[in-house]
Amino acid sequence: MESLNLLTALAHVNVEQGFFYVLAAIAIPLAYGVVFDRNVIRSGFLLIGVFATIAGLFFLLQAQFLGLSQILIYGVGITLVIVIALMLTNARQETGMNPALPANVGLASFVSVLVFTTIYLSLRSAEDWPLKNESSLSLPPNIEMIGKHLMTYYALPFEFASILLLAALVGAVMLSKAEPASLANAGDEAEQAVDGTDRV
């Protein structure tokens, strides 16, 4: 009788649970693909897939605003990452190369399995989750709630976030800007090249 536990548990799967497992069964292979695919660019596209499924999970959790902003931010953001990857990786070098550093594989597998086991066991062992069973139907729409919180109680963190973004923007521009000296050199070389061709 006891061995039927799993079957009975599976028989009581409701719709939300079914959607959850479908999304999980999409997200996990895609996440493996991100890590193991030989081509960085394709793994970038797979990463977008992972984020889309996570957005789906957010919809399941009735966080519509967050799901939509996840799509909005990552749809474009990761595309940008892919574009930069396209610019920086040499396809000829990359093909046929193992994406993983072999020296780290054993340690990494051990650590990741350990992390998962630890988290899972602590989840299982916790019994006193402070759950609240308020019916979510009577609640205000969450976009309204989020707006209210961001503008009142969390206004200061919100401002800090904007300052952080500004700093990141300026920092990124500074880091990725070509150095003036090298720029000048490049310009000179180009001019010389042009001159040379003219003379020839």
């Binding site: 959850f20 996440a31 960085v40 650590v111 988290i119």
Partner: peptide, 27 residues
């Protein structure tokens, strides 16, 4: 949901430790 988060987190840790490509590490 928390377990799924843990699975993805573990995969991410593996990828971060192992990746040869800096961009894949960011991913």
């Amino acid at each position: 949901y928390l377990s799924l988060g843990a699975v993805l987190f573990a995969i991410g840790i593996y990828g971060m430790t192992v990746s040869r490509n800096a961009i894949r590490m960011l991913m």
